[in-house]
Design a protein around this nucleic acid. Sequence first.
DNA 1: ATAGTTTTTTCACAAAGGTGAATCTAAATT
DNA 2: AATTTAGATTCACCTTTGTGAAAAAACTAT
Lengths: 195, 195
Amino acid sequence: MNKEEIIDLISKEYSLLTSDCKSELSNNSRIVTPEKNTILVKEGQFSDKTFFIIKGCARAYYLKDGRDISDWFAFENDFICSINSFFLNIPSPHFIEVLEDSLLLEISRENVERLSDKYSDFERLNRIVVTKTMLQQQERIVSIQFQSAEQKYENILSIYPNVTQRIPLTHIASYIGITLETLSRIRKPKKPNLI
Amino acid sequence: MNKEEIIDLISKEYSLLTSDCKSELSNNSRIVTPEKNTILVKEGQFSDKTFFIIKGCARAYYLKDGRDISDWFAFENDFICSINSFFLNIPSPHFIEVLEDSLLLEISRENVERLSDKYSDFERLNRIVVTKTMLQQQERIVSIQFQSAEQKYENILSIYPNVTQRIPLTHIASYIGITLETLSRIRKPKKPNLI
DNA sequence: ATAGTTTTTTCACAAAGGTGAATCTAAATT
DNA sequence: AATTTAGATTCACCTTTGTGAAAAAACTAT
């Protein structure tokens, strides 16, 4: 898949771009192909890049008291970035790593801003990507807030049905805010009620 | 405060608007002054309005198994809307009510969309409002995810220092995902360690 | 295959927070 | 002031989930 096809995909997936805008985006982005477990962003680093995933998957995570907490999963057709660093221009509290050999399109904040200024259709795409993220976060808040461990696990399965095939359970557990041990309990088939 | 001053305030607070855009926004929005405890949006209703708060405060909440769960607080200079209904055009899972006599500017989605199409500076403002919301939600997720009840309470106090003066504790408790009883335990001054 | 590493499951115990009921307080309303 | 109502606190008990350690299973690489 070449860059033009990738950009067409983004344009189709999120919001249509003019051909001028597409070709300028093409000249101001690059394809990266990190292999499994490559760290794209390290904690503490200023990261002004956002990544569109054509193939593969990635996660953002942070270390809280030495523990690895997954905060974001992204798959094909998703964008992922260090949300705080990218939008607030502060050192990233997150690491970002790819969990499979991946094919990504990397775009810098500078170019996102410049293209948003120059092309109102790019500004719109920008707004649509952010809105989608916001709505996903809204769902996630409701899920974490008042669901039991079991409901939260069912919830993530309903959003990403094959997540267990692609993401280690440790990461899934921390993402939904429970321990790996609790997740194990949940996954263990229940005894039928013997009367 | 008249409408032009309010719109200047929005423009200054979020992103500058041209005078054409401001006057068109002025002609396509209305001031509302609901008194304390007025419900602006009911569950199940399609709500295509967003409200900018000039004075007062409001909350979005939903009923889960008959219990009232606060999901959003908004104060002066914040926008509040039924996030799902406004952006996805579905029936609102939330109620929205004002918690004090308030002064609000109401804008319809239709006008938000129309103005976004027509004025790239309005599209930008739109994107900036959504981005700000997304970043607040990000903070909230981190807070609910791995903080103890006590830390979550301290966290909301650090974000809204006088929240306890304006919002009943029941709502604060449900917002941070704990029971009112647990919140009481936390607020009760601890016995000093007697040696 | 074999050894080594990582991931997942299991267990016993502990702690945090939820539950339901009762009580107390403060603010409205008459 | 007296009464009503809504909001906040306290208590005893219970459930869910976390903790630390160990075992089992599933991958990796030699």
